[in-house]
Simulated scan of single mutants.
Amino acid sequence: MKRIFDLFLSLLLLLFFAFPLLIIAFFVRITSTGPILYWSDRVGRNNAIFSMPKFRTMLVETPAVATHLLADPGKFLTPIGSFLRKSSLDELPQLWSIIKGDMSFVGPRPALYNQDDLIALRTTYGVEHLLPGLTGWAQINGRDELPIPEKVKLDVEYLQRQSFSLDMKIMFLTFLKVIRRDGITH
């Protein structure tokens, strides 16, 4: 049921956002050098690595670490990077990962391949068996500000409580957070 919902909604959103996707791609291309998409190696279900696309918001020479670990993340942003991040429009290409089956709309956010502490803690509590999501329980309860143990605690809570109604609640609350720009660091 969840997979059918993910496929249907992602295809519908791709149709709806087709023109905006082209406009964003155009502006990414003309405002900085490098590819339009940034393919990030992420940890998926059962700790398998997959490539997750995002619109590129950082300069090509930016180190491949979580943004909050950069000393001055602002200096690595492209001219439209801040806007894309604050509006969450940089996430739209992840619809491709949902169509492919690497991600779902709701689940724990996929860890970067080098976030060993997050991966280990999620593995300890069985969270690695979940398909990672575009959004999740931890996302609506703190997003980037959460320390890793708190994030994993919320991932475990989602693992134990997952249901279609909870997923709908998370998606609705995510929509509100995106509109309000809550919990976005850069």
Rank of each mutant, 00 (worst) to 15 (best):
S104P: 12
L11K: 04
R143W: 10
T174A: 06
V152F: 08
D167L: 03
H186Y: 14
S163Y: 04
K75L: 12
V43R: 01
A138I: 05
F5W: 09
L92Q: 08
V156R: 09
L9Q: 02
L134T: 09
A138N: 06
K153D: 13
F105D: 11
G142C: 03
R161V: 00
E145N: 15
G74V: 00
L159Y: 13
A25I: 01
K2A: 12
V28I: 03
T185W: 10
S104T: 10
E150R: 11
L134D: 04
F175E: 05
T174S: 13
A111T: 04
P93T: 10
A71S: 15
A120Q: 08
G183K: 11
Q162Y: 09
M171W: 09
P132S: 02
S87N: 03
G142W: 02
I184L: 13
I140G: 09
L70R: 04
L176S: 02
K86A: 09
K169R: 14
I36C: 01
V28S: 02
T33P: 07
V28L: 03
L15Q: 04
P93K: 11
N114V: 07
N141I: 08
R109D: 06
V106M: 09
I4L: 14
V127P: 01
L173D: 13
E157T: 12
D116W: 06
R109T: 04
S82A: 09
R122L: 08
D90S: 00
N141D: 08
R143C: 09
L70Y: 05
L7D: 07
S97N: 11
T33M: 06
I148K: 07
L37R: 01
I80H: 05
I98C: 13
S165M: 13
N114L: 05
S104R: 11
T31G: 05
L21K: 00
G183N: 15
I184G: 10
V60N: 02
V28R: 01
E157I: 00
A48M: 09
T31W: 07
G44C: 11
G136Y: 08
D167N: 06
V65L: 06
L95Y: 13
K153M: 12
I4A: 14
F17M: 10
S82N: 13
T62S: 07
R180L: 13
S51L: 13
L12H: 03
A71M: 07
